[in-house]
């Protein structure tokens, strides 16, 4: 199958890759670019493990074709924080024990960053509804929501 050349921006770095047109952005990130921080849980848009941003908007990368990334600005978990200097959200997830197995964590952190960019002061209900598309089977969400609310408070305080 002929491959298509895609020029895009990922985490503010110019990136080029080749893909088959039927490969999703998720496939391209994971299998063509070896960016495996974005996870695949369902490939039907029902679990949120593959959450990324496209031009700042939160989407499931399993429901975007890789070729659609042409000329767009993609944001993934690999662009959030660094090991030496974690993002507040990442730090709060660790402090609150807001992850158990960790497979949903990258998607949740990407989604939480999008939430707090849109709404720096969410209510608990707003946070729960915004993140309803990010399934977690381990935690019962309690500690995740606490980490999100604590992140929001800290980010407002330090803004």
């Amino acid at each position: 199958m002929a491959k298509t050349h895609v020029s895009t921006t990922i985490n503010n770095e110019p990136v080029e890759f080749l893909c088959e047109p039927n490969q999703t952005l998720l496939d391209c990130l994971r299998n063509e670019l070896q960016m495996t921080g974005t996870k695949e849980g369902c490939s039907t848009g029902d679990c949120g493990a593959c959450s990324v941003t496209v031009n700042g908007r939160l989407v499931c990368s399993c429901l975007v074709f890789g070729v659609e990334a042409e000329g767009q600005n993609i944001g993934t978990i690999e662009g959030i924080g660094k090991a030496e200097n974690l993002h507040v959200i990442q730090q709060k997830f660790l402090e609150h024990a807001a992850l158990q197995c960790g497979i949903c964590t990258p998607g949740l952190i990407v989604a939480t960053e999008a939430l707090l960019a849109e709404n720096p002061d969410p209510t608990e209900a707003e946070a729960r509804y915004y993140l309803a598309g990010n399934l977690c089977r381990c935690t019962g969400y309690d500690k995740i929501i606490r980490a999100v609310m604590d992140s929001a408070a800290e980010m407002r305080g330090t803004a």
Partner: peptide, 9 residues
């Protein structure tokens, strides 16, 4: 319609 992610598309 769907999640925040779905509404993004």
């Amino acid at each position: 319609i769907g999640s925040t992610q779905i509404q993004g598309r």
